[in-house]
Simulated assay, not measured.
Amino acid sequence: MKAIWNDTVIAESSNTKIVENNHYFPREDVKEEYFRSSDSHTRCPWKGKASYFHIEVDGNLNKDAAWYYPEASHAAKPIENHIAFWNGVKVTE
């Protein structure tokens, strides 16, 4: 699977985990140079507290376009520290 934004592959993995129709990419399979820390957080009733990244490619910023669970609940441990995308990021084979 590939995550693409602004015509750039920002993550690529053959080992994503699918939860609620979202592909979660292992942290080692994302291209960290495109990711900027965000102060945003949300809470999922069963996965726990999510943290976010902004994505920046060629000077263009996509705010809070990636999320992950740094300390996932017991039920969501398989996706702990895996990164998922939205807000215009295309995930494709």
Score class of each variant (00 low, 15 high):
Lys2Phe: 09
Lys2Ser: 03
Ala3Cys: 10
Ala3Phe: 09
Ile4Gly: 02
Ile4Tyr: 06
Ile4Phe: 06
Trp5Asn: 00
Trp5Met: 02
Trp5Ile: 15
Asn6Ser: 07
Asn6Tyr: 05
Asn6Pro: 02
Asp7Leu: 03
Asp7Gly: 00
Thr8Phe: 09
Thr8Leu: 07
Thr8Met: 13
Val9Asp: 05
Val9Ile: 15
Val9Thr: 13
Ile10Phe: 06
Ile10Thr: 01
Ile10Trp: 02
Ser13Met: 09
Ser13His: 11
Ser14Asp: 15
Asn15Phe: 05
Asn15Ala: 14
Thr16Ala: 04
Thr16Tyr: 06
Lys17Cys: 07
Ile18Asn: 14
Ile18Met: 15
Ile18Thr: 15
Val19Leu: 14
Val19Ala: 08
Glu20Asp: 15
Glu20Ala: 13
Asn21Thr: 13
Asn22Val: 02
Asn22Gly: 02
His23Asp: 11
Tyr24His: 13
Tyr24Ser: 03
Tyr24Asp: 03
Tyr24Met: 08
Phe25Leu: 08
Pro26Ser: 10
Pro26Trp: 09
Arg27Asn: 11
Arg27Tyr: 12
Arg27Ser: 12
Glu28Cys: 05
Asp29Leu: 04
Val30Gln: 08
Val30Leu: 14
Lys31Met: 09
Lys31Ser: 07
Glu33Asn: 06
Tyr34Pro: 00
Phe35Asn: 05
Ser38Cys: 11
Ser38Arg: 10
Asp39Ser: 14
Asp39Asn: 14
Asp39Phe: 08
Asp39His: 10
His41Asn: 07
Thr42Glu: 06
Arg43Met: 11
Arg43Trp: 08
Arg43Ile: 12
Arg43His: 13
Cys44Met: 03
Cys44Val: 00
Pro45Asp: 11
Trp46Met: 08
Lys47Asp: 08
Gly48Thr: 00
Ala50Tyr: 03
Ala50Lys: 00
Ser51Glu: 12
Tyr52Glu: 00
Tyr52Ile: 00
Tyr52Ala: 00
Tyr52Trp: 03
Phe53Gln: 00
Phe53Tyr: 15
Glu56Phe: 01
Glu56Cys: 01
Glu56Ala: 01
Val57Arg: 00
Val57Ser: 00
Asp58Leu: 01
Asn60Arg: 13
Leu61Lys: 14
Asn62Ser: 12
Ala66Gln: 05
Trp67Leu: 01
Trp67Lys: 01
Trp67Tyr: 07
Tyr68Met: 08
Tyr68His: 09
Tyr68Pro: 02
Tyr69Glu: 11
Tyr69Cys: 10
Pro70Leu: 12
Pro70Ser: 12
Glu71Cys: 03
Glu71Val: 12
Glu71Leu: 07
Glu71His: 13
Ser73Thr: 15
His74Asp: 15
His74Ala: 14
His74Gly: 11
His74Ile: 14
His74Pro: 06
Lys77Ile: 11
Ile79Pro: 08
Ile79Thr: 09
Glu80Leu: 11
Asn81Pro: 06
Asn81Gly: 06
His82Phe: 15
Ala84Gly: 05
Ala84Cys: 10
Trp86Ala: 03
Trp86Gln: 04
Trp86Lys: 03
Asn87Tyr: 10
Gly88Lys: 12
Gly88Tyr: 08
Gly88Ala: 07
Val89His: 03
Lys90Asp: 13
Lys90Tyr: 06
Val91Trp: 08
Val91Phe: 07
Thr92Gln: 12
Thr92Met: 12
Thr92Val: 15
Glu93Cys: 02
Glu93Ser: 11
Glu93Lys: 10
